[in-house]
Design a binder for these strands. Sequence first.
DNA 1: AAAGTGAATAATGAATGCAAAATCGAGTCA
DNA 2: TGACTCGATTTTGCATTCATTATTCACTTT
Lengths: 227, 227
Amino acid sequence: MSGTQIVRRNLHDEIAVGLREMIVKGELRPGEKVPEAALCIRFGVSRTPMREAFKALAAEGLLTLVPNRGAVVARITREEVAELFPVMGALEGLAGELACARITEAKVARIRKLHEQMARFYERGEIAPYYRSNRAIHEAIFEAADNAVLSSIFQNLLTRTNSVRFAVKKSPARWAEAVADHEAMLAALEARDGPGLGRILREHMRHKIEMVIEALDARDAAERRRS
Amino acid sequence: MSGTQIVRRNLHDEIAVGLREMIVKGELRPGEKVPEAALCIRFGVSRTPMREAFKALAAEGLLTLVPNRGAVVARITREEVAELFPVMGALEGLAGELACARITEAKVARIRKLHEQMARFYERGEIAPYYRSNRAIHEAIFEAADNAVLSSIFQNLLTRTNSVRFAVKKSPARWAEAVADHEAMLAALEARDGPGLGRILREHMRHKIEMVIEALDARDAAERRRS
DNA sequence: AAAGTGAATAATGAATGCAAAATCGAGTCA
DNA sequence: TGACTCGATTTTGCATTCATTATTCACTTT
């Protein structure tokens, strides 16, 4: 066996990866038309695999296909926010429960490290590094849960909600609340209290949705002022 | 406005509907190769929309695309069963909680009717009608939860697990257990006890997974005997 | 000037074409 | 008999073509 694995992939799959990245990075913005021809040139492919990728992303809920008018980046409505986040809460809650049942001592220790790091960034008010540690903790919980189906569905929902989650500007009170949630999470995890951790994660998600709604309200108010 | 709405749909979408139906009905069986050419003839379409439908169904987890070897109906492994069902449990649990918060008196009454009907079918040992009522109850809970995202993800998981769920032959003890679960569900729903209903539904799903594992064990044992 | 009209242009959706890869099968050899 | 070869055939992935549907924009009408 040679070390380098022969990765045989389909073009449409690689394009799908590229498009997902563009959506997450905001190069393609919600509601915007997806420029098929331009993307074909940019990726150096013909329309066939590009359009196949569109179908796949549409099935994932990232694009909306309008008959005879091509593809549009899916736009999240307030109603969908109200639907998506509780689902994410239930899933992350499950991840927490499974993690408590399966996690090793070493991984708990690693999460504690991440948590302490995150707390330091909070103290210093360093937002970007804070988010990085924060995300690492949530990812570590899913990793410990060891459920690929769960992770992939959750990841999909994260991607779909990317634009609205990113719109949030945490107030000091909200930020403190989030850190407090994380303290409780760590305690539950160290006590291997599955139901407890599940409850905290669902609660954490409920706080998140409130922040998102606040952000959407603020954004809409700003838009109304402009017009 | 005329009564007949002009439904403009994409070909690949209609094909996807048709393929999903074939998979659910067992016309295409897990592990089987999906005959592209034959399906093109059957649906009266060219390869392009057929292959687009394949990509969409693959994104849904219903098909597996093997590079240079076309599409295969996704086959559920025991490990995936162990991953999929807890996720379904968490989602149906959420549906129960939401339903308790939102359901109208009339809908509760309808579910009670369905439940009593189902109980009668159980008493008489009529399996097919029992399953019909059973499914109607679960669907009614999702309807009451009024969360389209939740419903569509759950529906997708139902489809993906179709083959293994269908393999289950309930023992009398298991059947009694299921009916008891349903009694508890109705009680929780009538009391609008969201957390309680959530717990019962997760428990109900845990029972389901045990039945599925039993069925898979039996199937594998039978297969081993044959070889 | 604003609203309407229709020809020219662009885009979309689906069928077809073509090169590369996989599969099949007759023939060969151990 | 069973494993192997290698050319023929089929299948697959992607590019290209073609018909249909939107969109644009110069032009008319009020």
